[in-house]
Computed example of a mutant assay.
Amino acid sequence: MNRSELITAVAERSGVSQSDADSVLAAFGDVLLEAVAKGDAVKLPGLMTVERVERAARTGRNPRTGETLEIAASFGAKLTAGSKLKAAAAGS
């Protein structure tokens, strides 16, 4: 499902216009990005949790030359599926 299909489905399910559904989806994305950037977790019980995680500095290896190199610490995003999302993926 792409963005336009999602907007259409949300608009039909909620009884609002597609432009309103698009605005809500865009606002949700903005709020999610801001929260994760600040280090806050966004929890939608039963659906998912999105949080920022820290990756420690580590030693890597160039696969072409075999030379070792230091990889700096960084941040990433982690999405954890909730129970309802897991059940839907399992076909339940």
Rank of each mutant, 00 (worst) to 15 (best):
S92L: 06
S17Q: 03
V42H: 08
K78T: 09
E70N: 13
G60D: 10
A21N: 03
T65Y: 04
R13S: 14
A56P: 00
A89G: 02
K84E: 09
E51S: 14
L32E: 03
E51I: 01
G66F: 04
L6A: 11
A21K: 05
L25I: 14
E54R: 08
L33H: 04
T8L: 12
A27I: 10
R64L: 12
A88D: 06
A37K: 15
E51P: 03
V50F: 08
A87G: 01
L44P: 05
A90H: 04
T8E: 15
S19T: 13
A26T: 14
F28E: 02
T65F: 00
A72V: 10
A56F: 00
N2I: 08
D30F: 06
L79S: 08
E70I: 08
R58M: 15
S19Q: 07
L79N: 05
P63K: 10
R61A: 03
E54S: 14
L69Y: 15
G76W: 01
D40L: 06
G91M: 03
E70H: 15
K84V: 00
L79H: 03
K38V: 05
R61V: 12
V50C: 03
R55E: 11
T49V: 14
A90S: 06
D22I: 02
S74L: 09
K43D: 15
V36F: 01
L47F: 14
E67P: 01
L25H: 07
A89K: 01
A81W: 11
T80R: 15
